[in-house]
């Protein structure tokens, strides 16, 4: 079964778990995610695999408490079991030597960005990472990112840490001062949309990792569908990463809200 061997609170709402999953640890690549469930009535939710340890047979997951299911997960402790855990799902990131890679992470999106930064650095790229959060308390994985980046720029909305401003401002500065061959941006959908608009201006090939609604995660139901380059794609099997300049972000943002009313209701009822 999938026992939690480590739990660490990274910020008020963000928790890091190290979970026993030997087969997943062995097969996983950067960019892959898992789907898990807590309890027999639990919802299936996707989480990116942040790290893995093949010898220990564990994977690392970072989760933000934003709803019923993530809340239940955050309440588990070391020694507890995750009811169902399946993976690795999704297409792995295309890791290659591009030259200079600009990595942009927003909020809890920094977690899935981490394995890609590590892999891109190991592949021989120059990696410049811009981390953004609303405030100092919500900033995660800064040390880990510094380990694998040539430079880390921190932006906070309120200026409580690093520089005051949005991730796009930090990104544009880098783009203006040096040649960027490729960009990868992960964070809230609206952040990825604006990062894409920015890099399109400068014609920089950009990948984003989408966080759509999912149910099965294996391409069976279509809940995660997005329009990329005029075609319908499934985030869980064709993604989660796509060419940022081809994504219909407006449609994706709307679809993220599909269950908002039901979820708000559920959250209020659980209180």
């Amino acid at each position: 079964m999938n026992k939690i061997v480590e739990k660490k609170q990274l910020s008020e709402n963000v928790v890091k778990f190290v979970v026993e999953a030997p087969m997943i640890a062995k097969s996983r690549k950067p960019g892959n995610f898992v789907i898990l469930r807590i309890g027999s009535k639990g919802e299936r939710i996707p989480l990116t695999i942040v790290d893995s340890d093949i010898e220990r047979g564990t994977i690392t997951l970072i989760v933000q408490n934003v709803g019923v299911s993530s809340g239940k997960l955050c309440q588990l402790n070391e020694g507890d079991e995750i009811t169902d855990l399946v993976g690795p799902l999704g297409k792995a990131t295309h890791i290659h030597q591009a030259g200079t890679v600009l990595a942009l992470g927003g909020g809890v999106g920094i977690a899935p960005l981490y394995p890609i930064v590590e892999a891109m650095k190991k592949a021989g790229n120059r990696v410049i990472t811009v981390l953004a959060a609303r405030n100092k308390d919500l900033l995660i994985l800064e040390e880990e990112m510094r380990q694998w980046s040539d430079e880390v720029i921190v932006m906070t909305d309120d200026g409580s840490y690093g520089r005051k401003g949005l991730v796009t401002e930090g990104a544009e500065e880098v783009i203006k001062r040096e040649k960027v061959d490729e960009c990868i941006a992960i964070g809230p959908a609206i952040m990825m949309k604006f990062c894409a608009l920015l890099t399109k201006k400068y014609d920089i090939p950009t990948q984003v990792s989408l966080n759509t609604i999912m149910v099965d995660g294996t391409g069976m139901c279509g809940a995660c569908r997005v329009t990329v380059n005029g075609e319908t794609k499934f985030t869980c099997v064709d993604g989660p990463e796509f060419n940022a300049h081809q994504i219909d972000f407006d449609e994706m943002l709307k679809r993220l809200q599909a269950y908002k009313r039901e979820e708000d209701q559920a959250r209020n009822e659980k209180k």
Partner: peptide
Amino acid sequence: NLNGVMSSNEYLTRVNLMAANQDDSDTP
């Protein structure tokens, strides 16, 4: 791709597999 248009796989999986129609299920 509008909200509220889904495949039968999604609808039936939510209801039959995830018991989404029941109050105590977390799946909407």
